[in-house]
Amino acid sequence: MNHFAGIDVGASTTKAVIIDKNREILGHSVKDSGADFKAAAEKAFAEAKKQAKKKAEDEYFVVSTGYGRRNVSFAGDTKTEISCHAKGSFYYFPESHTLIDIGGQDSKIIKVNASGNRTGFKMNRKCAAGTGAFLEEMANRLKIKLEKLNELAEKSEKDVQIGSYCTVFSATEILTKIREGVEVKDLVKGIFHSIIKRAIEMDPLEGNIVMSGGVVAHNPFLVSMFEEKLEKKIFVPPLPQLTGAFGAALFALEEKGG
């Protein structure tokens, strides 16, 4: 077996990563998970294979992870997204650290020690607060495209506070602020702040900090804001949205790569 793949079937997107024996990424892709996790996993895998320019008869050992990990029929093993994120993150940042992963439907804080073992984790899935789903809902309210959030927030020079914990309350708060004439760019920055606050509430963020996930991949300004808040540098792996899938591929390699 020469090729190893990780498929991370998240609640909103499905990610695939193919690596070789040297842990080199040969191909990757991100697809919407939609309502058919199995199909999404197949699609993401097919595209990653295409990118990797591998022949159809090549064999892969696949580890699946994420919300829909059990829907990946071609996976040889499954691991939780917690373990895979820790694995992926430690590869790029091989020191003890705290990983903050902000995904589409959840946020996770994972503690990794200097040997790469997990020492603890927390996962928030109780509500959308602090996740990609929250951003989507707010963008929807403000009638702006998700891709525009980052550049809008960057332009803001104000500090608007969105205080509510709950997504519905936050939406009401935003309506009030619109009525008061607050500018959209300032609101977006306030929304970013709110995501940061939710993460800070989950765990004391001590030591080295790494951030991953789709929200981070698409909104680098959020990371800058976070750095300012924590007064330290935050490390972001090269393909932040693929951290879990990459970690799963590393597990696949460990299991079958000798």
């Binding site: 939780t80 997204e81 917690i82 073992n117 984790f121 996962m123 899935r125």
Partner: peptide, 19 residues
């Protein structure tokens, strides 16, 4: 949430395994 609880537990056991 079935899924949340089980993922948490499973991840916890994976953590114990890796010690």
């Amino acid at each position: 949430s079935e899924e949340q609880a089980k993922t948490n537990i499973e991840a916890f056991i994976e953590q114990l395994e890796s010690r």
